[in-house]
């Protein structure tokens, strides 16, 4: 026996990226804009979707709901009378902590792509893994709740750098917290200067109009390009 060195130099996530491109091509053909919606667990993704998803002027929205287990979030969104597809990640060896391109691809046959203009993919709550895996999205949105602390952009730079919009949620709680909003925004500016950001409260509805407008704008922009 002897050893042979084989030079490879290949991005280990190439396989995922290739499938993501195929997903994106399918979404483009169907004229559907895809938003990858990410945050830590409990930051308010589902509530922020509940606020807007049934009320996007001129845009028919659908949701792909990624969860490690169960359909609690999907049930909440289905109550808004928008098409919701559930994707549980507990296949293979153990529940995945994120969605990858292949999981989304496996859900494609169940998605009503002909009946929607916008697909919001609610990723598994996690600030690390979802940032690594493209799924074929046109845009990435993340939610950072003020209850999470001001240091999060510095701790999770990949997530904060790869998103196109940051929703700072739960601002109705600011009077009750030691959270320094300016400090958070300074950290955000270090990690992703000039990234679009919105201050919102899913609970009170403050700032939610801007979030709704953003989704309508993004869906329209893709259609204009199609």
């Amino acid at each position: 026996m002897h050893r042979t060195r084989v030079t490879i130099v290949e991005e280990a996530l190439d396989a995922n990226n290739t499938i993501a491109q195929a997903n994106r091509a399918d979404f483009d053909r169907a004229g559907v804009t895809v938003v990858n919606f990410m945050s830590a667990p409990g930051a308010g993704k589902t509530t922020l979707l509940e606020r807007v998803v049934a009320d996007l002027p001129g845009v028919r929205a659908g949701v792909l709901e990624g969860d490690v287990q169960g359909s609690l979030d999907a049930d909440r969104l289905a109550a808004k009378h928008v098409p919701v597809t559930q994707l549980n990640t507990d296949s293979g060896f153990g529940g995945e902590c994120h969605l990858d391109a292949n999981m989304v691809r496996s859900a494609l046959p169940q998605l009503p792509l002909d009946d929607i203009d916008l697909l919001v993919v609610e990723n598994v709550g996690n600030l690390v893994c979802p940032a690594e895996f493209r799924i074929g999205e046109d845009a990435r949105v993340m939610v950072s709740a003020v209850t999470e602390g001001e240091d999060k952009p510095l701790k999770y730079p990949l997530m904060f750098r790869t998103c196109d919009l940051v929703l700072v949620n739960k601002i109705d709680l600011l009077p009750h917290l030691d959270y320094d909003l300016d400090r958070f925004l300074r950290h955000l500016d270090h990690v992703h200067p000039d990234v679009e950001r919105m201050l919102v409260s899913a609970r009170t509805g403050e700032g939610v109009d801007a979030w709704r407008d953003w989704l309508v704008r993004v869906a329209g922009r893709e259609r204009a390009l199609a």
Partner: peptide
């Protein structure tokens, strides 16, 4: 993680190294 240019304050920084996750090479037994 601070991505603003220290020379001109621009936000237009591109990552030229540090994003890699590459399989560089392997050694196989023959």
């Amino acid at each position: 993680p601070s991505f603003r240019c220290p020379a001109c304050s621009s936000s237009r920084a591109e990552v030229t190294a540090g994003n890699e996750f590459d399989v560089e090479s392997i050694e196989v037994e023959e």
